[in-house]
Design a protein around this nucleic acid. Structure first.
Lengths: 180, 180
DNA sequence: CCAGATAAGTCAATATGGCTGACGTAAATT
DNA sequence: AATTTACGTCAGCCATATTGACTTATCTGG
């Protein structure tokens, strides 16, 4: 067990067999390199399919992320999106403009605060977002299919705990020296 | 259950509460958006820490990947690395050159095939690779800590099955029409 | 032994998606 | 009335990826 389905790399040959003296016998620390690599390969293949679909219509991964969250939370503000994605206004501006110009996302002024531009997917945008999400969902489902019921919760819990807690917006300003 | 530790987004307000008419009641297909987002946030935070360390010495994520696999399989060839990372020779070239120039990676001509340049980390390279891997390992361990013994296997199996099978190098040339 | 394949490196151009810094404008808040 | 906030935009920089073309050294099969 432990390397259940591990196929990613070419694994051409033991590699170390090609070097002569490089067998430096330094006791490698007990790190789970394999799990680290699983994260890398899993994420890479997780986004590969959407990437292809997007490339065909002149979009990239950045457009996907924006469209995804706009579709998930219609009516969200630009600022919300910036915080969610943790990118700058300028970076967002570029891709958002394209999404709007190409008719995937709509902007409407906020009803209560008219400075806000609330974002929502158009029907076209919703279709694309759901198409992309559908592929990713299918892949996730396939990977979860063999697991027992608790397995799904384990995976979900694991991923949740890999996430840094959201930076508490207001409360950070306190200088530790000020504590006295 | 199901949203065990889900904290990522700012979640400023229900969002839909700000739009008036946008409640288009279209029956959203039954996709696990939350899990899709967990993948996104988990991976983002998984690489964030290494990214910071690397930025301090003028390296980026690309250097991390190269150094990681060189450290993992000392003596591997440039070609192996290209296949593992699925990038082009030119992309690799730039990054690899920097790693060599800065003394993190060494090249030695293959003993049997002298065209090959076998890659191995220097002591300095090994230290950096292990430092980065150590942080990622710690984060993974923390996320796995709460799980029961089988939980770890579930996570591992899930990630493994998220990976596309390696393209069988030689066997692809067969045109289906040629089958007859 | 030589022709051709292979391993690696390199030059040049291009695209994407991040970033900083500096401004501008409209609307809300104090 | 002054300030802050939400958003947009111009300009430039950097990292990382791409394609295409070419060179050099070396290995391998006929």
């Amino acid at each position: 067990m432990a390397d259940v389905n591990f196929v990613p790399r070419p694994v051409v040959a033991p590699a170390a067999a090609r070097v002569g003296p490089a067998d430096s016998a330094a006791p490698l620390p007990d790190l789970d390199f394999e799990l680290i690599e699983l994260m890398f390969f899993a994420y890479r293949d997780f986004v590969a399919e959407p990437d292809q679909t997007l490339a065909a219509i002149g979009f990239g991964r950045a457009h996907h992320r924006v469209l995804h969250f706009v579709n998930r939370q219609p009516g969200l503000r630009v600022t919300d999106l910036l915080e969610t994605l943790r990118i700058t206004k300028q970076s967002l501006g570029r891709v958002l403009k394209q999404l709007i110009d190409d008719g995937y996302v709509e902007q409407t002024p906020g009803a209560v605060d008219r400075r806000e531009r609330l974002l929502a997917p158009t029907e076209k945008g919703r279709r694309l977002a759901l198409d992309l999400a559908g592929r990713q969902h299918a892949r996730l489902e396939a990977a979860l299919a063999d697991l027992p019921a608790e397995g799904r919760d384990h995976v979900r819990g694991f991923l949740s705990r890999m996430i840094d807690p959201a930076p508490r917006a207001g409360l950070v300003a306190l200088d530790p020296a000020e504590e006295s």
